[in-house]
């Protein structure tokens, strides 16, 4: 029973309260880069959910069964980067061959995720917080859901912003950054949730 409660808390905490983009400021590049249209943002979000969940699992395995027994936990960053990059490559190849429709839907976003700091960030957070593999996977999934929520919301805002007239100096990225900042403030509201 306790486990279920913990997992629920992790879900809500990682997706809303400490949203990966809006309060941890990880994964900002895709957040600003591919949030022009809701469709592409949702595509990126689903790709991130997929990859982060998988990589949380694999990095959890490696940390618990390779790094800890050998006493070389300090190499986690290097190993995680290596593993995540390889994993994304493999997933891309696998999808291309076996599930071409999903591969087409995720498109260019899949390889882009290799360099997404959020993926590495989650793997390291899992270690820092001493999560076991189950908790880690749930944490990864919830964080990625939080990322998807944030990027889809921003894309919706940007689609509206496009039609408006601004000062020339504010056009394009500046106004998007302002919008993202306001979103971050709004998401602070979730911080006061208590259980």
């Amino acid at each position: 029973m306790n486990t279920v409660k913990d997992l629920l808390l992790i879900m809500i905490g990682s997706s809303l309260m400490s949203n990966v983009v809006l309060s941890q400021f990880l994964g900002l590049c895709p957040f600003l880069g591919v949030s022009k249209k809701v469709n592409t943002a949702a595509g990126m979000g689903s790709a991130v959910i997929f990859v982060i969940t998988l990589s949380s699992f694999v990095t959890g395995l490696i940390y618990n069964y390779i790094l800890t027994p050998l006493n070389i936990e300090y190499l986690q960053t290097i190993v995680f980067i290596l593993v995540i990059a390889a994993l994304v490559q493999f997933v891309e190849m696998f999808l291309k061959k076996k599930v071409p429709s999903l591969y087409k839907a995720l498109g260019v976003y899949l390889p882009l995720i290799t360099t997404n700091c959020a993926v590495l960030g989650i793997a390291l957070t899992n270690v820092q917080k001493d999560y076991n593999i189950l908790y880690g996977v749930v944490n990864g999934f919830a964080t990625a859901v939080g990322f998807t929520i944030a990027i889809v919301l921003l894309a919706g805002i940007r689609e509206k912003i496009e039609d408006n007239d601004f000062l020339p100096a504010m056009k394009g990225m500046p106004i998007v950054l302002v919008a993202a900042g306001l979103m971050a403030i709004a998401f602070c509201g979730f911080g006061s949730l208590s259980f």
């Binding site: 050998l70 006493n71 290596l82 190849m93």
Partner: peptide, 29 residues
């Protein structure tokens, strides 16, 4: 410690590389 670290990372890298190479061949479209 350094030797263990080098060897284990080396082996890991080798494994990952081999795995990617094999799957790249198997899954070539």
């Amino acid at each position: 410690n350094i030797i263990i670290a080098t060897i284990s990372i080396g082996i890991l890298g080798l494994l990952v590389g081999t795995f990617l190479g094999i799957s790249g061949n198997k899954l070539a479209v």
